[in-house]
Design a protein around this nucleic acid. Structure first.
Lengths: 206, 206
DNA sequence: TAGATTGTTAATCGATTAACAATC
DNA sequence: TAGATTGTTAATCGATTAACAATC
């Protein structure tokens, strides 16, 4: 089935399935069922079976799913069976946290380049990376054919940097700035703003 | 209308509306319409009007919405008209980024306490905070009546720390660890895992 | 075989949109 | 008044769930 026909809300759950199944594999489990996976994720078993059925038949009646096999299939579906190079723009505190974040490894991503526009930061080391001048980013990114960027710059700079990234060939942006950014058709953007989550929860607090 | 009757998916959009309206206010705008706001957020005007109508009548036919007034109303609805104290557990790189994050101010939150379990970190300064021993957290949190926590600890520690926080009276947790945590009824949890966003986007990359 | 669980269908449930009377 | 936009209704659209035949 062609990707464009699968509802985006289903695609968005696959990474969650992949994460939990990888955890099960680490625990040494070999087989699971839609019921068990659903319980661990707080999702109905019917939904998990329905979601997976969009992409093929991965289980066995009476038995369930082979975890290693399903992990591999989900990696292929999500296109993370290989490793994507990712650039980071913004070498502030958040940028530091992203650089030192251990969670990318084995999940399909590798930090390739780190940029900032602050002359006092350019040339400095963060972890094993040298902070590059953002003004050279378009050429670098083009040359290395990188498609994914993480944006950890101040809100005021977010749109300008975005425009440059798109020009350089970036097609997916994870934006940590608490603002909406405009991109042309064909460029994906997702946002992380912790305050949105906090405000969502305070609604329910007494 | 009683809060529990409003669909959660609508509640989840209110912080987004609030963020964009605050930005408009900063730009000096006084009035907006559901159409204009929708355009800036990539949401239909009908949805915005329907969402807001769950909580009252905030606009004027023919005119639109007074931005300052609507911002105030949304703050009240989301219970962020006052400032919540928040505790942070985990003083690693991510913890540092959270402490130095400027985005909490004026959005309803203030960092109150920072914890870690690493003796080499306890007592050190991060920004203007002294890292506290997590073993004293239950008493501290109870004494100060804090309800909200951010969790920036390794995956392996997430559940243990969560149990302690719940015992201390925490009722809302923003979890940065890439794992699901179990909490009793009445405790809200939201998650931030950048890799889930990246994997969602790679699905659509050629 | 008996028990368990899948993949799928049909029914239910809920969310979004279109349209418009009300009215500023 | 004329034009614009709200709040709301009804229609549409889409997502979730329940149930079960197929089958391991």
């Amino acid at each position: 089935m062609s990707p464009s026909t699968v509802p985006d809300i289903i695609v968005g759950r696959l990474p969650l399935y992949l994460r939990e199944l990888s955890k099960m594999a680490e625990e040494g489990k070999e087989i699971t069922s839609s019921q068990e996976l659903g319980k661990r994720l707080g999702i109905s078993s019917a939904q998990i079976r329905k979601d997976l059925s969009q992409f093929g038949e991965f289980g066995k009646q009476g038995t369930g799913y082979n975890i290693t096999f399903l992990v591999m299939q989900l990696r292929i579906i999500l296109k993370v069976e290989d490793v994507w190079d990712v650039v980071l723009v913004g070498a502030g505190d958040l940028g530091h946290a992203v650089v030192n974040y251990g969670g990318f490894t084995d999940r399909g991503f590798r930090l390739g380049l780190v940029y900032d526009d602050d002359p006092s930061k350019i040339g400095q080391m963060i972890g094993s990376y040298i902070v590059q001048d953002v003004h050279s980013s378009v050429d670098d990114i083009r040359a290395r054919n990188i498609r994914i960027a993480m944006l950890a710059v101040p809100t005021a700079d977010a749109q300008t940097v975005t425009d440059r990234l798109v020009e350089a060939g970036i097609r997916a942006i994870l934006c940590y700035a608490p603002t909406s950014i405009s991109v042309p058709e064909g460029v994906k953007v997702e946002y992380i703003d912790p305050v949105l989550h906090l405000q969502h929860m305070t609604y329910y607090l007494p």
